[in-house]
Computed example of a mutant assay.
Amino acid sequence: MDVRPATVFDDVRAVIGPQNPTANVCWCLSYRIPSRRNRDLRGPARGALVEELCAADPPPGVLAHDGAEPVGWAAIAPRAETTFARNRKIPRLDDLPVWSLWCIRVRPGHRGRGISHALIDGAVAFAREHGAPVVEAYPLDNRGATVDRTMAYAGLRPNFEAAGFTHAADTTSTLAGHPRVLMRLDLRPARVTPGRR
């Protein structure tokens, strides 16, 4: 599985775009842009904005490819550039310029192959390459309960734990009836105490 920056709009559209270009689907914009703009942006204008984001530096996330076929998506960006910067339900823990990883999507027909794990790892690598000191995620703490796949975009706590993230805080946010937790992965070099090896 090859995970790389989401710079090719057609590949992003294949994973998160609508079959009908006039449909008002999320396009993974609901946490990326202010609520009012998200409500006002309709139909093809949503895809046009995502196309602009794909041409920006950094692009809006990463894509997993199986050969040439795009099969998964993860949205990641500096928290300060998302609506999480002002989210009252998901706490801000400190002043570090953390990056937020908030959406993981695997195309139907490709699930159950570890793609979500590859996307988390690829998103972390992408954030590290862009200087992120810490990556945050806000997955569902479903405790083994079944989650509606359309609402599992935030990811599941065990998948982030498997990638080395640790529980940093509880939140008052819920999704599909499950609480969301704030998980963190520190990317800063380990500090060595003087006189110890």
Rank of each mutant, 00 (worst) to 15 (best):
P18S: 08
P18G: 04
Q19L: 15
P21A: 08
T22F: 12
T22G: 09
T22I: 14
N24H: 14
C26L: 08
C28W: 00
R32S: 11
I33A: 08
I33C: 05
P34F: 06
P34N: 05
P34V: 07
R36N: 13
R36F: 00
R36D: 15
N38Y: 15
D40C: 11
D40F: 05
R42D: 08
R42F: 10
R42V: 13
R42H: 13
P44E: 15
P44Q: 14
A45Q: 15
A45T: 11
A45F: 11
A45V: 12
R46V: 09
R46E: 07
L49C: 12
L49G: 11
V50C: 11
V50G: 06
E51S: 15
E52M: 14
L53P: 04
C54F: 03
A55V: 12
A56Q: 14
A56P: 09
D57G: 10
D57T: 15
P58S: 14
P59T: 12
P59M: 09
P59I: 04
P60I: 06
G61P: 04
V62E: 03
A64M: 03
A64I: 02
G67Y: 08
A68K: 07
E69A: 11
P70H: 01
V71Y: 02
V71W: 03
V71L: 02
G72I: 00
G72Q: 03
A74G: 03
A75E: 04
I76V: 15
I76G: 00
I76L: 07
A77V: 06
A77M: 04
P78Y: 03
A80M: 07
A80G: 08
E81M: 10
T82H: 01
T82G: 07
T82Q: 00
T82I: 05
T83G: 06
A85K: 03
A85E: 07
N87T: 10
R88E: 06
K89T: 14
I90C: 02
L93A: 07
L93K: 02
D94F: 00
D94P: 07
D95G: 05
L96A: 12
W99K: 06
S100F: 02
C103R: 01
I104L: 15
P108Q: 13
G109I: 13
G109C: 12
G109Q: 08
H110W: 14
H110T: 08
R111P: 08
G112E: 09
G112F: 11
R113K: 14
I115Y: 01
A118I: 04
A118V: 01
L119T: 06
I120A: 00
I120E: 01
D121W: 02
